[in-house]
Amino acid sequence: MSQSTLRRLLSTARYEVLPTAGIVERIEEYVAPGREITVTASTGLTLEATLSTAEQLQALGFRAVPHLAARMIHGRPELTEVVDRLAEAAVDRIFVPAGDATPPAGGYVGAHDLLVDLSSMAAPFRHIGVSAYPESHPIIPDDVTVQAMWDKRDYATHLVSNLCFDPALIASWVGRVRSRGIELPLVLGIAGKVELGKLARVATKIGVGESTRFLRKNTATFTRMAKPGGYNPRKFLDKIGPVLDDPDMGVAGLHVYTFNQIKDTEVWRRKQLAALGGAEEVSTAW
């Protein structure tokens, strides 16, 4: 991978966090304003936690990206309220996953349903991300996720991929996405500088039922990190370098799953950039 590609991706990398108590203060302490911070939505932490965390981050000068999990929203009236609230907070970017709420809170069974309603509103969002799955979803069949990505392409500005620790699989998957005619920029999901013990502690903060789902969905993370040598994000990026360098693959940026280990991830990112030299970029490609 070229140094210019790595510098660009590390400079513009955005972080994903869970809206647990104290996370805003930790972000403010360790991360400079202007970075894009996405805030997850989960039934254990409530949609209110997601929205209020996003509002606080936006007010502090970060570019907040709340997750609007379709299955957590009761219907168009609540969606309208959420849109108005985010507009008031000057939030202009969102991520729309289906979410895990079972049964759904209302009429939105998946992300596409919410996106259709959203498209008919005077919503302020310039950036709308949707999910992409290099590996099989733990609940949804592969053919359904592939079709969903195709259906959502006209309502979104970019794709955000779920975690995957297999460089060869990522390479083949991105190629297949492009061969299907899906041209949306891809923000590639990678794990940050995460320690196993801290990851387990994060899981305990989001409720017993939610923790079970968290651990099941992130089994690959635990397995990978438990191996000798653990997980090294820089080595992982080097292994997928050809994909990152290839403009036809359309990798516009990095979506770093921090699991709330903000300090460790930000220190790692800055160290990598310092070794590369040059100034950070501040624009967002997607």
Rank of each mutant, 00 (worst) to 15 (best):
259 F>Y: 05
144 V>Y: 06
281 E>W: 08
49 A>D: 07
200 A>K: 10
41 A>M: 15
273 L>R: 13
125 F>C: 05
40 T>M: 14
197 G>L: 07
95 F>N: 01
123 A>M: 02
118 L>S: 01
197 G>D: 03
35 R>C: 03
87 A>M: 11
213 R>N: 13
229 G>L: 09
279 A>P: 00
263 K>V: 09
123 A>Y: 01
12 T>S: 13
244 L>H: 07
248 D>P: 06
37 I>N: 00
76 R>M: 11
173 W>M: 01
136 S>D: 02
260 N>W: 02
112 H>C: 07
21 A>N: 13
13 A>V: 05
110 G>V: 08
281 E>Q: 15
164 C>K: 12
103 P>D: 10
25 E>Y: 14
165 F>P: 07
227 K>E: 03
166 D>M: 15
14 R>Q: 07
116 V>D: 00
72 M>V: 13
151 D>G: 02
117 D>G: 02
121 M>C: 12
220 A>Y: 14
81 E>V: 13
32 A>L: 14
226 A>D: 05
214 F>Q: 04
65 V>N: 07
263 K>E: 02
63 R>H: 12
66 P>A: 05
128 I>P: 02
256 V>Y: 08
55 E>C: 06
61 G>K: 10
236 F>G: 03
7 R>K: 10
49 A>P: 03
209 G>M: 11
246 D>I: 04
188 L>Y: 03
234 R>T: 14
238 D>N: 08
59 A>E: 10
101 A>Q: 06
240 I>C: 05
57 L>P: 00
65 V>D: 02
162 N>W: 12
28 E>V: 08
220 A>R: 07
147 Q>M: 09
61 G>R: 02
107 G>S: 13
108 Y>W: 04
49 A>M: 15
180 R>C: 11
193 K>M: 09
17 V>L: 15
21 A>E: 10
33 P>T: 07
194 V>E: 01
252 A>W: 06
12 T>M: 09
152 K>W: 01
109 V>I: 12
45 L>K: 13
103 P>Q: 05
282 V>F: 03
14 R>P: 10
256 V>F: 10
261 Q>G: 10
260 N>A: 01
231 Y>I: 05
13 A>F: 14
35 R>D: 00
221 T>D: 12
176 R>T: 04
268 W>S: 05
126 R>K: 06
130 V>G: 04
141 P>H: 01
174 V>L: 08
25 E>R: 05
74 H>I: 11
177 V>F: 08
147 Q>L: 09
34 G>Y: 01
19 P>Y: 00
142 D>F: 05
190 I>H: 00
168 A>H: 04
14 R>S: 12
33 P>L: 03
3 Q>A: 11
1 M>R: 08
2 S>D: 12
255 H>L: 06
47 L>R: 10
266 E>Y: 02
189 G>K: 01
